[in-house]
Design a protein around this nucleic acid. Structure first.
Lengths: 248, 248
DNA sequence: CGGGATATTGAGTTAGTTCAACACAGGTGG
DNA sequence: CCACCTGTGTTGAACTAACTCAATATCCCG
């Protein structure tokens, strides 16, 4: 856990601002965000950022890197709720209730903007547009969850795998993290299995099935989407709704 | 679809206000809520309140009655995302994106407070405390979804059934909808199955299993919780976090 | 009294699990 | 530089939880 002091990114130069999917922020908003931001948290791989049952005083926006949000049962079974990518916001639950009901762990080194929970109220009080953005973000992550629940509850194994892979690919592409049809995947098949509610073995076999159908190519550490349209059809993936997303 | 004109509930007399789980609202907040509210929507059983793919101009708070939120796949498979009870808020996704990504249908006659989407912004601008409440509500429903996803992804059939039933029972009890250990259940086993990602037949058999373990008693239309503690243990149900919930 | 939903039960099937062995890569220390 | 070790991926085989199909029962409502 290291909080860089002078080498911090100024919000002016926020790397995410360049991406066209993010809405433009006014100078006043930017000034407030800069005041709101208390520092940066640079993580290693495998760092626990938020822990179920604890009470974090921070909120975070992901500047770079991948992570995942999960819950566990007493005997160790784990369900990955969703993957966390740049631009995602986390920790709001801790500010609304007293305890985190889920954990978050990094999959790569990450850079997180840190916001203190105490100032959250002043954001609502003084910057309704940013408060609105937070609601937007909360709604969006609910949408992701809805999709995942539909997957895990009602899609077959091959449909599920097709769905997550395509979904991750599309999210990553919006963030300019893809190279043509290739995407670096910073997690193992075990993570995939835990996000899909499948066993590791069956996840592996299902990846093979997708490969032999020539829809994807999976090499540990990366995927290539060979046939986006067919994959979308198999996955029942509705190409998603677009709105400019907020930056905070 | 009938919108009662003069017989509307004044927010002063909102039936939910009596329940101690809801936070007290100030007179100013109450006045705004009354201004925000554009009417009431009284539904029949089986009414589609929000429909996936459409664009509703309204937001709703449930005053009374039960409903459920769901998504479907092209071939008709359906996943119930969660059940909707009094005090729940819905339709926010429609205001954040342009299209609903899920549907909502009533299980009983319902009374809904209707709020026009256009005035949402003025809520953020003028009543940050209420804006905060909306975020609270969004967070809460994310929490419910997290739990469900964990269930569907990682719990066995009997654990899942135990979990939903207990969870519904606890939610209903907070709303004073239970009688001792009994709760009227306004839906069929098919609904239960669709919320759990199980087949109808297996759901039925699992209900029997819980009955013969003497944990519950299920009669179509009602359940009785015979052993709350054992049920909670089987379900891995962490007795939930409490905060006063907002009313809007 | 009849008809349409809903619930119940049994039997056979299958998608996905568990177990177990093996392969492979990268990283460390002797 | 090699030998080993640990984490990851791969594959086959046996097993089982949950599914589908199908028949029957029950309930409610007109």
């Amino acid at each position: 856990m290291s909080v860089a002091a002078p080498t911090q990114t100024r919000c002016q130069q926020c790397p995410l601002k360049r991406l066209e999917i993010f809405r433009a922020v006014s100078p006043e908003e930017l000034a407030f965000i800069e005041y709101f931001k208390s520092g940066e948290f640079v993580t290693e791989v495998g760092t626990t950022i938020l822990l179920e049952g604890t009470n974090s005083p921070h909120l975070y926006t992901v500047l770079s890197g991948w992570g995942f949000r999960y819950k566990s049962l007493a005997d160790g079974r784990r369900q990955i709720l969703n993957f966390v990518l740049p631009g995602d916001f986390m920790g709001l639950q801790g500010s609304m209730f007293n305890e985190m009901q889920h954990s978050v762990e990094s999959l790569t080194p990450m850079v997180l903007c840190v916001f203190p929970r105490d100032k959250l109220w002043s954001l609502y009080a003084k910057h309704p547009s940013l408060a609105f953005d937070l609601t937007w973000l909360a709604s969006r992550s609910e949408r992701l969850l809805d999709e995942n629940l539909l997957s895990v509850g009602r899609r077959s194994a091959i449909e599920r795998v097709a769905f997550v892979l395509l979904d991750l690919f599309l999210r990553a592409r919006q963030l300019a993290l893809t190279q043509n049809n290739r995407l670096k995947i910073p997690f193992t098949q075990q993570h995939l299995a835990d996000s899909l509610g499948l066993s590791l073995v069956h996840t592996n076999k299902t990846l093979n099935a997708l490969t032999s159908r020539r829809l994807i190519r999976w090499k540990p550490g990366a995927i290539e989407i060979l046939d986006e349209a067919k994959l979308a059809e198999l996955a029942n993936h509705e190409t998603s709704v677009s709105t400019l997303r907020p930056l905070i």
